[in-house]
């Protein structure tokens, strides 16, 4: 089985600061892989490199057998990598439904003229977008009643779900989730965990950053551990839990982060 995403010796530095060095690992189709590590370990930087928000200083990102370095972010999204952000980035003034509809952008075609003339094809496409958006809102567990509400007015937990729905709208093959359970209570975290597995069962591959250990241990097939911009361990959750290096780096240095 060939990997869906392969990171080959990724390095990233900002000025003189090294954020990532020599990161290599891969994600296989259908897997849920967790990225853990203390705050500042470079996890979000890795996501930003994968989604081309900025280019790696070294190494290459191979997605589905092709190097995607040098592509602009929207093209990476089009290739099939979707993401959410650590500090939820919704289009706050748009409605909940419109947020998901925006996510559908790269799978639809109607240009300005067709949009204004409302040709038959365009109307059909819009209907499709709307229907798909409703399905996705349903999937992530957002009540249909809130679809006309401004996204910024949703409670925090719902905003996180909405962001996942928006990412799913682009039909990604790989979904990057940046702390999907941050700021959630135990019950909500459980729901998110269930949602992640549900999404995987639909055929998606997931790479997620998470501080909540219970979620990582339950949901992930494999875990990659970062510290100071380097990968210090990789393996199934049960092995990671026992790894003395991980325990020291992770629990020893950042207890605060671990229970965050």
């Amino acid at each position: 089985m060939s990997a869906l995403l392969a990171l080959e010796r990724i390095g990233k530095s900002f000025g003189g600061l090294t954020a990532l060095s020599d990161i290599s690992f891969s994600v296989n189709p259908g897997e849920i892989v967790g990225v853990i590590g203390p705050n500042g370990a470079g996890k979000t930087t890795l996501f930003n490199v994968i989604t081309a928000l900025f280019p790696p200083t070294e190494g290459s990102v191979v997605f589905d057998g092709e190097a995607i370095a040098g592509l602009p972010p929207h093209a990476v999204a089009r290739r099939g990598i979707g993401r959410t952000f650590q500090n939820v980035r919704l289009f706050a003034d748009m409605t909940v439904e419109e947020n998901v509809m925006v996510g559908r952008h790269c799978r639809t075609r109607a240009g300005a003229l067709r949009g204004v003339l409302r040709t038959r094809g365009e109307r059909e496409e819009e209907r499709g977008i709307r229907q798909r958006s409703r399905e996705l809102l349903d999937l992530v567990g957002l009540p249909g009643a809130c679809s006309g509400q401004a996204a910024g007015s949703l409670p925090y937990g719902h905003q996180r779900r909405l962001e996942i729905a928006r990412a799913l709208a682009a039909d990604p093959r790989l979904l990057l989730l940046d702390e999907p359970a941050a700021g959630m209570n135990e019950a909500e975290t459980k729901e998110v965990s269930g949602l992640i597995r549900k999404v995987r069962d639909l055929g998606m591959t997931i790479l997620l950053i998470e501080h909540d250990m219970s979620l990582v241990m339950k949901a992930c097939d494999r875990v990659v551990v970062f510290n100071f911009g380097r990968k210090i361990a990789e393996g199934p959750p049960s092995a990671i839990r026992e790894d003395p290096g991980v325990i020291e780096a992770y629990l020893g240095s950042a207890e605060g982060a671990a229970d965050a």
Binding site: T51, L53, P72, P73, H74, A75, A77, R78, G82, R83, F85, R89, L90, F91, V102, G103, H105, C106, R107, R166, A167, A169, A170
Partner: peptide
Amino acid sequence: RAAEASGIPV
């Protein structure tokens, strides 16, 4: 940035 990540050619 979110628009870009959602696949919109900004």
